[in-house]
Design a protein around this nucleic acid. Structure first.
Lengths: 155, 155
DNA sequence: TAGACACGGTTGATACATCACCCAATGGGA
DNA sequence: TCCCATTGGGTGATGTATCAACCGTGTCTA
């Protein structure tokens, strides 16, 4: 079995390593920047973005988890910590006795509004400004195609 | 200041989110696969790959940290855990009283040789097989260009 | 040759992710 | 109507990442 492995060609190897490293570095910098300048971690940021995108700044735990592709356990722990820092609150759901909402607070809105401009600027400085529109289209297409494949085949 | 932010255009937004999500999903799957089938975490895997690439399967902590872009602290903690599991050993450095080597063990070699084929196969199945050679070249170029920029400007 | 400073690595505290379970509410059949 | 599988969420243990502070060793220079 091990003898039939199709190892990566040099170009494939280079592409794959480059891709992995790109994300590592980019993610690292953006994360550090967010955290150092605004007391909002990348995870916090993602949660807050989704909440501000939702009506009344509220979402069910599960829906949030699905759109962030987090496990419910992670969501639960993380929201608890964020609630502890006053950025969100947990709210019971009257319709469904089991369910719960997570709702953004004023402090949460302030936090993300403070963090967003620097974040967007950094995404530009570090990434978008160095990619041509044509390349960007290729990247978008690759990403969406591969993600679609993974959706179809939950392995 | 907040008024002068160049927010992302819809295409940029789509590209950026796609890129971020692509890595999240791909990384998640590959990591889970690695861990579930071989008792080697993605971090372990990276360390072992670098060690097998080095003469005598040994490298200085710092060198390893630099090429993986880890902090020395992370390296220290992680190697300690890997040593606990018998995949590597720590070795004093005679030339430099401060320094130390990390050396792969036979068990470490077995572990990575067991894990690599499945990993490569998954990288293909999930990613490379869905990207054309031309797209792959674009991706490589983007990655290397952006990484180069970050090297030049350590912000 | 004595400081002073840089380097290589370690440690402990804290935050975070994941896993394996748990629990209660729900909703569909038999 | 009862039963039971499913769903929405929570919990605690464990492994991992990050930060800051630390320590001994090496190196440079006054």
């Amino acid at each position: 079995m091990a003898e039939t492995v199709r190892w990566l060609t040099p170009e494939e190897q280079r592409a794959w390593r480059g891709f992995v490293r790109l994300h590592e570095r980019l993610g690292g910098r953006l994360g550090r920047l967010l955290q150092s300048e605004s007391k909002v971690s990348p995870a916090d940021f993602a949660v807050l973005v989704h909440l501000t995108d939702s009506p009344h700044g509220r979402q069910r735990y599960q829906d949030l988890a699905r759109s962030l592709e987090w496990e419910k356990s992670r969501m639960s722990h993380h929201i608890a910590r964020m609630a502890g820092r006053g950025m969100v609150v947990r709210e019971e759901c009257p319709d469904d006795g089991r369910g719960a909402f997570v709702v953004i607070t004023d402090a949460g809105r302030e936090a993300i509004e403070a963090a967003a401009p620097r974040h967007v600027e950094a995404v530009r400085d570090l990434f978008l400004d160095h990619v041509t529109p044509a390349e960007l289209r290729v990247l978008t297409e690759i990403s969406e195609r591969v993600i679609r494949r993974m959706d179809e085949d939950p392995s």
